[in-house]
Design a protein around this nucleic acid. Structure first.
Length: 427
RNA sequence: GCCAGGGUGGGGUAAUGGCCAUCCUAGGGGAUUGUGGUUCCCUCGAUCUGGGUUCAAUUCCCGGUCCUGGCCCCA
């Protein structure tokens, strides 16, 4: 025992079968739900030219990316997010795409950050982009999609919707730096700091309306503060649609979403019990395509932090275990056991066969741990063309003719809930 | 990058400046070779890492690393 045990890199995770099955279940729900909205899945490379990400987010993010030079001296980065790659793909695919483009995606992303609860160096995002549709209904639909996805996943969340026009109108007389600083302060819910910033820079008269705006929760309140801005009609229409669709949301005109390429509607969702990293979804309207060499195209999209919703669901039972059957056999009946296993597997039944040459009773013991039913194929069974089926939950035992096995086993599984839960809490 | 708290078999734990490092659980095997999950027996398996203090360190001190939570950031 002198060899060093290798471990996984910091910020990464191994996933055992129970956890993977739960993740696959949620993934499937998300994909299916997006598909019902007409969003079809796309995929992009795990790594891209570093420039793709710095164009979008600035040079500063290099320190938080897995960026390196490849053997051809290209500057490459593991993708830290998926919106930029998807928009790059949209630009590359060019004019042939039928507009508007409705895509969803699911993939792992990589960021070199300090791991903490709900934050890992390799993490998964599920997202959707609606490209080249610019209307109140487009905005409303993408929000409805995000809302329905989170509901389909089964998380409890609050949805907050804002529009950058609110804050930008109010702060239009201030410098870009002051705007950025104020938005950042508000993002941290530090309205005192925001007020201080305004006062220090000679905009004291904006403090009161700003604080009022952060507390405003209805459209009339908001427009009473910022006036009759050009976007008013569209924002009201979007809200009407969301109300009609029964989407539960809060208006939050102070949502900042830092980056400059966001325009118009922005929205975020939060879940409980996630500690400091409680935002599970974020999105908004943006213009990115022209940065990647395409035409200036209005887009709206969002990304869901998949790992965070899994953390939020960690106390929920997600998967129903599939029934499991073990075939018990003797050395001289091995081939018959293999044939029976093959036949049952054709029916989609999970069948286990001892691979280690264990004794009959050891096989039985193992079956008791992993299976719901044992099919015994011994000498007697082979001679008489039958199988013995033991219900490992009740201990009941029956004999069926081999030819009747398929029908009867299906019937049997229908009436016997599988006992194997084996769902450990997914932490 | 910063702060705090932690690292003993796979998981959960006890204890200790020296003696065989405790217990539970999980895993493997078995109890006259065709009946398990109960029981009994056997077995596998651990002091994160490097340095220091010491006759002697898992234990005390320092660094690293990893984990957990928070800050920063969050595309």
């Amino acid at each position: 025992m002198s060899t060093k045990i290798l471990t996984k890199p910091r910020g990464t995770r191994d996933m055992l079968p129970d956890e993977m099955e739960a993740r696959r279940e949620i993934e499937t729900r998300l994909r299916e739900c997006a598909r019902t909205f007409g969003y079809r899945e796309v995929a992009t490379p795990a790594f891209e030219e570093t420039e793709l990400f710095t164009i979008r987010s600035g040079e500063g993010i290099i320190s938080e990316m897995y960026a390196f030079e490849d053997k051809g001296n290209r500057s490459i980065s593991l993708r830290p997010e998926l919106t930029a790659p998807v928009l790059r793909m949209y630009v590359n695919e060019g004019r042939s795409l039928v507009k508007p483009v409705k895509w969803c995606y699911f993939g792992d992303c990589f960021r070199y950050e300090r791991p903490q609860k709900g934050r890992y160096r390799q993490f998964w995002q599920f997202g959707a982009e609606l490209i080249d549709a610019d209307s109140a209904l487009a905005d409303a639909e993408i929000i409805m999609l995000a809302y329905e996805l989170l509901k389909a996943a089964g998380v409890t969340f609050t949805l907050k919707i804002g529009d950058l026009a609110c804050m930008r109108t109010l702060l239009s007389e201030t410098s870009a730096e002051v705007q950025a600083a104020v938005r950042q302060a508000l993002d941290k819910r530090d309205s005192d700091k925001a007020a201080m910033l305004l006062t220090e820079n000679g905009h004291e008269h904006l403090v009161k309306p700003l604080l009022a705006l952060t507390k405003a929760t209805t459209l009339p309140e908001i427009f009473a503060i910022i006036g009759d801005i050009p976007q008013r009609e569209r924002i009201e229409e979007m809200c009407q649609i969301l109300d009609a669709a029964g989407v539960a949301y809060e208006l939050s005109p102070a949502i900042a979403r830092g980056l400059d390429y966001y325009v118009g509607v922005v929205f975020e969702a939060f879940a409980e019990g996630l500690g400091a990293e409680n935002q599970i979804m974020g999105g908004g309207a943006y213009r990115l395509a022209h940065l990647f060499g395409g035409e200036d195209t209005p887009s709206v999209g969002f990304a869901i932090g998949f790992d965070r919703i899994m953390v939020a669901l960690s106390n929920t039972q997600i998967i129903t275990p599939r029934p499991q059957i073990s075939i018990i056999y003797l050395p001289q009946t091995r081939d018959a056991a293999v044939r029976t296993a093959a036949m049952l597997r054709m029916l989609g039944i999970c069948v286990d066969l001892d691979l280690t040459g264990r004794s009959f009773s050891a096989q039985m013991k193992n079956a008791g741990k992993i299976a719901d039913a044992a099919i015994i194929i011994g000498k007697k069974e082979v001679e008489e063309d039958i199988v013995t089926v033991k219900n490992l939950k009740t201990g009941d035992q029956v004999q069926w003719s081999l030819s009747a096995l398929p029908e009867q086993i299906i019937e049997f599984l229908k009436h016997n809930e599988c006992k194997k839960q084996n769902i450990k809490s997914l932490q």
